[in-house]
Write a protein that binds this DNA or RNA. Structure first.
Lengths: 269, 269
DNA sequence: TAGTGGTCTAGACCACACG
DNA sequence: GTGTGGTCTAGACCACTAC
């Protein structure tokens, strides 16, 4: 009864049953047989339909959930997701989350979870150019919403002076906009982009399933006059990381190069 | 026997058993109780140790696998992962994968999977500025290796002229280096970064577990003289996407801004 | 009360690695 | 052959939603 079911229309190659089922359901969603917002049959019914156990159905659904095709709601059912995607420019302006949200038709909102003075970790001290190893910094955790959907968790570190002076404003608004409005010009940044699966805690903060990919935007932003030769007297004003839902966000950039490295390449060809 | 085991040291709060077990194992790995490369007890033995079923252990291990702490090998066991991370600059030079690899001590290698003439999709035609809707392009799929570990799958599209002229070279080397060496200067690009969970096929190409986060680097690279006003006569020479393992790769950039948008912000405050 | 998804169990068979 | 992880089953209890 079990593996013989593979022959009734599922793929006959080596792929697992739950993968084959996942693909069938995915195709039904993409062709519109199941429309956005629509409820799928229950796990039990799907099991009957495909002739497999509920466990196998659950693995297939977990796959679709992680790819963003469906969302599950306990006690209610499995629903086809409506797609969204908000793009954030990496350079221009310097990560004004709120501006980007508004431009793309969403209402941006911030919920500050924590704002407190703590001792800087070694990494934060290095990024903020703190020579005192026991220096304190302000650590802020906040969640960004787009139309009531949590899309990102921001963990920000401020030097003590900035955090103390702007604590109230920082707890209410978006980081960059607040700093700029208070006269702190951020004109340079070092950033890196990465991706991790949502841990259990993150999955609860951002209302995503365990393991959903999150984009990790690490940044150190500087004020002052930067120098091209990477020296200069610029001064870090803030650093942190933004963990954003990959089903809602992406980062864009436009690049222009002069190609001083052409010689290098030619030499190593 | 089952849920009462929660009291023997596992978290007593609302989190699932497999999460609590996952955290315990993660801590043992991070503190060095299990060292990199070391084999963990078998799933059966772990089940006995924690007093849970094998299914629950498997969920815990799946979580650790996805976070990159362990890798599983059928018939051999569960092994603690040794960490790697290769960073790629987004701007300077323009994604010379091979150069970045070499600079960070890895031997870069390319395996070309496919290289064939196909009809351009609407998206590719738009990106390559093809006015003819039935135009053909060369489509290449290749895998990037760092010291024999597959770290990225690149899907590249070339205009017919470039692909036909450079087919042989393109099939052997890295895209950008090959183009530059053939006199095609790429001095501008539009890129975007995204993340998706590995599908079944991708997980096989890149030797990662199903659902592992992959970084998606979308790019359109231009040759010619670009104009600041986004017009100009620059010409797309290549477009595509690089899907890279997030446990091995990250993207970095340095940003400088002039802040012409300050006025805009002040107006909307 | 009935139905749903979330969690967990106990047991089975398979493919693969190793001795 | 023995042990391993990969897959799948059948059944249970729970928390939650809706009627």
């Amino acid at each position: 009864m079990t593996l013989s079911m593979v022959s009734i229309g599922l793929a006959a190659d080596g792929q697992p049953l739950h993968i084959a089922i996942s693909k069938q359901l995915k195709e039904k969603i993409e062709t519109g047989a199941y429309e956005p917002g629509e409820r799928l049959p229950s796990e039990f019914d799907l099991g009957v339909m495909f002739g497999v156990s509920r466990t196998t159905i659950r693995k297939a659904i977990a796959n679709l959930t992680q790819q963003g095709f469906v969302t599950t709601q306990r006690g209610r059912g499995i629903f086809v997701t409506e797609q969204h995607k908000i793009s954030f420019s990496m350079a221009n302006p310097l990560t004004f989350f709120d501006v980007a949200l508004k431009q793309q038709g969403y209402e941006g909102r911030v919920q500050s979870l924590r704002f407190q003075l703590t001792q800087a970790t070694a990494e934060v001290a290095r990024k903020l150019h703190l020579t005192d190893k026991t220096a304190e910094v302000y650590r802020q955790e906040k969640i960004y919403y787009a139309d009531d959907t949590p899309i990102a968790l921001d963990v920000v570190y401020y030097p003590k002076a900035i955090g103390a002076a702007l604590g109230d404003q920082l707890q209410q608004g978006f980081t960059y906009s607040t700093l700029v409005r208070q006269g702190i010009l951020l004109n340079a940044a070092k950033v890196s982009l990465d991706s991790i699966p949502a841990t259990y805690e993150l999955s609860e903060y951002l209302s995503v399933p365990l393991g959903m990919p999150l984009l990790v935007f690490n940044y150190v932003a500087y004020q002052g006059t930067p120098r091209r030769d990477s020296g200069g007297n610029r001064q870090p004003a803030v650093c942190g990381k933004t963990l954003s839902r990959s089903d809602w966000t992406c980062y864009t950039a436009e690049i222009e190069v002069d190609h001083p490295e052409l010689n290098f390449l030619a030499e190593n060809s």
